[in-house]
């Protein structure tokens, strides 16, 4: 089981849940199951989301494996200079 915490902007799109428990082995599976459960997340997940796994930010590597018990945080995809 993976504990996913959403950034505040996503919470209203996920029935006002801040933390969600998902069974997933990779970031890709995690995002797919989140979209299935909360269709409102589809747009942000496709365009605006970065995934923080144990403190490290992943913007593209959806194949990143998620060991059991991993803490995941969905944050906004960033701009840089």
């Amino acid at each position: 089981m993976i504990e996913v915490t959403l950034w505040a902007g996503l919470v209203p799109l996920a029935d006002n849940q801040t933390t969600i428990i998902v069974e997933a082995r990779t970031v890709r599976e995690l995002l797919r199951k989140l979209q299935e459960r909360y269709p409102g997340l589809e747009g942000p997940i496709n365009n605006e989301v970065a995934v923080v796994v144990d403190g490290v930010i992943y913007r593209n590597d959806w194949s990143k494996e998620l060991p059991e018990g991993t803490k995941v945080f969905l944050m906004r995809r960033l701009a840089g200079g």
């Binding site: 915490t5 950034w7 923080v52 144990d54 403190g55 490290v56 930010i57 803490k71 945080f73 944050m75």
Partner: peptide, 9 residues
């Protein structure tokens, strides 16, 4: 736990 959410490595 960072102020913006995630826990630091």
């Amino acid at each position: 736990r960072s102020s913006y959410g995630p826990v630091y490595g």
